[in-house]
């Protein structure tokens, strides 16, 4: 096991974590500000990827596709908020889960109706193809770009929330919804904007990841489950928590898949060790979540004290 391999796996973990952050940031924002559990967040990820793939195929330009994917996800988010989600804020979480689960089914079937059941083709842009030499190892340029992109978005999001008027309203909305409505902030408009922002982040993650994965119906749900793990670990409603949680989940999942089978192989027959190691590695992040819930039931960075 060489240093190069460990370094490459660490980079993989960080890249995976940053993409998870894009997903979880929207999820945790929506929960923090509106108190809403949105299971359909994965569908917005899927919409972003499909629109990006379709638009990139039409124009031959990945970047136009990316913009289209983000815009489509944001638009879908805004429409969903106005037509469905708005009616759910006053209801309890079970009703929200039920309604947003229905949205998953509707959106998945809708995407299948429009784009068909077979996966779409979306490739990385030409400038980001190939690998770069990092001295000890070669690393995929596109994944490196994803890391840069993820960090840039995280910084941008932090600036938005810490430095702008919208950010102040979002933070105020997180601490006391009634009070900011009483102060004259248009709370309906704020909710739609926050929901669309979360949707845009999910759509962006979908489009970016879609270029190296399969753009297919149902691609959002596995990521959604991980995103929930991330925000439970990080503390529901906290952007900082989502960042730390996403990086933890990304690195632990990647390193676990890489190291556990090797660890078992030291005292077991190789093919058996592979099976046991792979099975245990897929449980690792849930064990982490359980541990965090035992030690800090509100997550690592609880949003409300």
């Amino acid at each position: 096991m060489s240093l190069a391999l460990v370094l490459e796996q660490l980079l993989n973990g960080v890249q995976f974590g940053l993409m998870l952050f894009l997903m979880s940031a929207g999820l945790t924002l929506v929960f923090g500000v509106m108190g809403l559990i949105n299971l359909a967040h994965g569908s917005l990820y899927m919409i972003g990827a499909f629109c990006c793939a379709a638009f990139a195929a039409m124009t031959g330009n990945f970047w136009l596709g990316l913009v289209a994917g983000i815009a489509a996800a944001a638009a879908a988010g805004a429409i969903i908020e106005v037509t469905v989600i708005r009616r759910l804020y006053a209801r309890d979480h079970l009703d929200q889960v039920l309604a947003t689960f229905a949205l998953i089914l509707i959106l998945s079937e809708g995407v299948r109706l429009i784009f068909g059941p077979f996966p779409l083709y979306l490739n990385v842009p030409d400038v980001l193809r190939g690998t770069v030499d990092l001295g000890v190892t070669r690393y995929s340029l596109y994944r490196l770009a994803l890391i840069g992109f993820g960090i840039a978005v995280a910084v941008g999001l932090w600036l938005l929330i810490a430095k702008t008027r919208l950010g102040i309203q979002i933070r105020a909305g997180e601490s006391d919804r009634e009070m900011i409505a009483a102060l004259g902030v248009n709370i309906r408009w704020l909710y739609t904007v926050v929901f669309a922002l979360g949707a845009a982040l999910a759509g962006m993650a979908g489009a970016l990841v879609g270029a190296i994965q399969s753009v297919q119906v149902g691609m959002g749900e596995p990521v959604l489950i991980l995103a929930f793990v991330v925000i439970v670990i990080g503390g529901i409603g906290s952007i900082k928590g989502a960042m730390v949680g996403a990086l933890l989940v990304g690195v632990i999942d990647t390193m676990g898949r890489f190291l556990l089978p090797r660890a078992f192989a030291t005292f077991m027959e190789p093919s058996q060790a592979m099976g046991v190691g792979a099975a245990l590695a897929s449980m690792l992040i849930y064990l982490l979540m359980a541990l965090v819930l035992i030690l800090r039931p509100k997550g690592l960075f609880p949003a409300h004290g």
């Binding site: 391999l5 490459e8 993989n12 994944r143 890489f258």
Partner: peptide, 10 residues
């Protein structure tokens, strides 16, 4: 499959 590809490479 980044983790797997890294192991293939090594």
């Amino acid at each position: 499959y980044a983790a797997e590809i890294a192991q293939i490479r090594a």
